[in-house]
Amino acid sequence: MNLSPNDLIMLFNDVFRERYRTILVKGSHEPEYIPADGPEGLAQVVFAHGYYASALHEISHWCIAGEYRRTLHDYGYWYCPDGRTAEQQQAFEQVEVKPQAMEWLFSLAAGSRFHISVDNLSGAGAADEPGFRRKVRAQAQHYLEQGLPDRADDFFNALLSFYGTRAGLIQAWRQDAERIAPLTCTSNFSRKTEAV
């Protein structure tokens, strides 16, 4: 399947431009959120370097941000860049569970491959990558069972319709969940008990 960020721009803008005065924009550098500069202005969700996955991730952050946060540049959050300490990385992983779970479901709906991101290549790496993966999987499962927040649900359904992935979604989820965060234990202990 040919996945173009232009399709995401079209879908996002069709769903949210009028209702939320917000558009998705292909950026050339780092992603950011730029609030509207007045009542007639448009807020911009800017994704990095035209990357498809970056667009899905930034849309996820926008879908989570509340009304007040959407009036602030980058939702009012301070971002600590790659190269984080262990404590900073732990905080990063805590706040990234919901957006990455949402991005994962958007990826499935679009038929694209999702990758967990601990986003700390120059630092100490993940604080707890297996734990982070399990938390993202649990949150995505919760969204599937209980429903996504309203804006996320609107975009999720737009993706499912546009890419025609609704019928195979649950099977794709099951396969992908095992790839991203397997629930089966593959430790030496389990291998030893299998041999007995």
Rank of each mutant, 00 (worst) to 15 (best):
A48G: 09
H49V: 04
G50Y: 04
G50A: 05
Y51D: 15
A55L: 02
H57A: 12
H61K: 05
C63T: 12
A65L: 10
G66I: 15
Y68M: 10
R69P: 11
R70Y: 06
T71M: 14
T71I: 14
L72C: 14
D74P: 12
Y75H: 11
W78R: 14
W78L: 08
Y79I: 14
G83H: 12
R84F: 07
E87G: 08
E87W: 15
Q90H: 13
F92P: 04
F92I: 11
E93C: 09
Q94N: 13
V95M: 07
P99M: 04
Q100N: 11
E103N: 06
L105R: 07
L105M: 09
F106I: 02
S107F: 01
L108I: 11
L108W: 09
A110W: 02
I116M: 06
V118A: 07
N120T: 04
L121E: 13
L121S: 11
S122F: 15
D128Q: 05
D128M: 05
G131E: 03
G131F: 01
R133C: 00
R137S: 04
Q139C: 07
Q139H: 07
A140L: 01
Q141M: 13
H142C: 10
H142G: 05
E145V: 04
Q146P: 00
P149T: 08
P149A: 00
R151H: 09
D154E: 12
R166E: 15
R166Q: 15
R166G: 13
I170D: 10
Q171P: 00
A172W: 06
R174N: 10
A177P: 09
E178R: 10
T184M: 11
C185W: 12
C185A: 13
